[in-house]
Computed example of a mutant assay.
Amino acid sequence: MFDVPSPVWPTVVLIVILFGDALMSAVPVQFIRDCMDGVRFPVDDWGWALVYVKLVAVAGLLVGIWQPGVGVAATAGVIAYFVAAAIAHLRARFLNSTFWVNCLGMLAISIGVLVYSYLI
């Protein structure tokens, strides 16, 4: 049912952004550390897991450019990741600009890629 992304450029944009996010999360820059502290995520113990999840998503998005179905599954996974992040922000009542710009911004970009590259 789902083929490769068409057009492919939104997926490439998501790949670049998500890869940059993974790099910044590897040794968390201050705003990422503040975000993790705000939602009470134990970044010192489990921060590595978030980096791996993001890198696996990047790999899935890359493979999905050529393999039917993989890209849409990876995009759905990215959406699920940012939905979970939004829920963590809401539960912690950590609703500053990081939530509105970064978390919801990435969720919107991911949903936009799904709709524009796979559903339209």
Rank of each mutant, 00 (worst) to 15 (best):
M1F: 13
M1Y: 13
V4L: 06
V4R: 14
V4C: 04
P5E: 01
P5K: 06
S6L: 05
S6I: 05
P7R: 07
P7E: 06
V8Y: 08
V8H: 10
V8F: 08
W9T: 10
W9Y: 09
W9E: 10
P10Y: 00
P10G: 04
P10W: 03
P10A: 00
V12C: 00
V12H: 03
V13F: 05
V13K: 00
V16N: 00
V16W: 05
I17L: 04
L18Q: 00
L18P: 02
F19R: 06
G20C: 11
A22N: 09
A22C: 07
M24V: 12
M24I: 11
M24K: 11
A26M: 12
A26V: 08
V27Y: 09
V29W: 05
V29H: 11
V29P: 02
F31P: 13
R33K: 14
D34K: 15
D34I: 07
C35F: 14
C35L: 12
M36Y: 13
D37M: 13
D37T: 12
D37V: 12
V39H: 02
R40S: 12
P42I: 00
V43M: 07
D44Q: 06
D44C: 04
D45K: 12
D45R: 02
D45H: 10
W46V: 08
G47F: 00
G47Y: 00
G47N: 03
W48F: 13
W48E: 07
A49G: 06
A49Q: 09
A49H: 01
V51T: 06
K54N: 09
L55R: 02
A57V: 10
A57K: 05
A57T: 12
A57W: 01
A57F: 08
A57I: 11
A59D: 05
A59P: 08
G60C: 07
L61G: 03
L61F: 00
L62G: 01
G64P: 03
Q67V: 15
Q67T: 14
P68G: 08
P68F: 13
G69P: 11
V70P: 06
V70N: 03
G71H: 03
V72C: 02
A73F: 15
A74W: 04
A74P: 09
T75Y: 05
T75P: 01
A76D: 03
A76T: 11
G77C: 10
G77Y: 04
V78T: 09
V78N: 02
V78F: 05
A80E: 13
Y81A: 01
Y81W: 07
F82Y: 04
F82P: 00
V83D: 02
V83R: 04
I87S: 05
I87N: 06
A88E: 11
A88K: 09
H89M: 07
R91G: 12
R91L: 12
R91V: 14
A92R: 13
A92T: 10
F94R: 08
F94H: 10
L95R: 10
N96G: 14
S97Y: 09
F99T: 13
W100G: 05
V101H: 10
L104I: 15
G105W: 03
M106C: 07
M106L: 14
L107E: 08
L107A: 04
L107M: 04
I109P: 03
I109R: 01
S110R: 06
G112T: 00
V113C: 02
V113F: 02
L114A: 13
V115A: 15
V115K: 07
V115N: 05
Y116W: 15
Y118I: 06
L119R: 08
L119E: 12
I120R: 14
